[in-house]
């Protein structure tokens, strides 16, 4: 029965974008803060810190989840994926490339979370309906784009991912 006392330093180990990592934190540390402050993975953004805005969405064992509603100690042993795991500036993922082509972002604050949600959705459901996409995006606030370019980017990515699979 591991009891981690308040105010002490505890080691948490998990997989981040395919790499085994460790971080020291208090029990009260949010996953979002440990990613950013301890592991310098600042691609995950922090907006509202109560699960509403979606900016901090990451994938925990393959499914999208709010890093601000997750304690770092809860992900001991889990496999995490953040926006840093999608692509690199000179080698964007198909989804990221489609966001660029369709102007699916302006300020970019909400983008990492949206990318992690859509990446998981398109893996699970390669042919999402308009309704599927809108319901998925309802978990994210974007105050720049009005969402229409994001939907176009998602549709384009779905098509291109299917082409890539057939090729």
């Amino acid at each position: 029965m591991p009891l981690l006392p308040a105010g002490r330093r505890h080691r948490v180990a998990f997989i981040l974008n395919g790499v085994a990592v460790e971080a020291d934190c208090e029990p009260r540390a949010l996953l979002s803060d440990v990613l950013r402050h301890s592991l310098a993975a600042t691609g995950t953004h922090v907006g509202c810190e109560h699960g509403v805005c979606g900016a901090c969405t990451v994938q925990i064992d393959g499914v999208p989840a709010r890093a601000c509603l997750t304690l770092a100690v809860q992900v001991e042993g889990a496999a995490l994926r953040t926006v840093e795991g999608l692509g690199t500036p000179d080698r964007l993922s198909i989804l990221q490339q489609c966001f660029r082509e369709e102007h699916g972002l302006q300020c970019g604050f909400c983008t990492p979370g949206i990318l992690m949600s859509l990446d998981a959705l398109l893996r699970e459901n390669p042919s999402p309906s308009e309704q599927d996409l809108k319901e998925n995006l309802s978990g994210h606030l974007c105050r720049c784009t009005g969402y229409a370019p994001i939907l176009r980017a998602a549709r384009r990515a779905a098509e291109r991912l299917k082409d890539a699979e057939h090729a």
Partner: peptide
């Protein structure tokens, strides 16, 4: 917007919880 400090117990059985 950060939690106050608490002890965290990862229960292995329902009896422990």
């Amino acid at each position: 917007m950060k939690p106050a400090a608490f002890d965290y117990l990862r229960a292995a059985t329902q009896e422990e919880a």
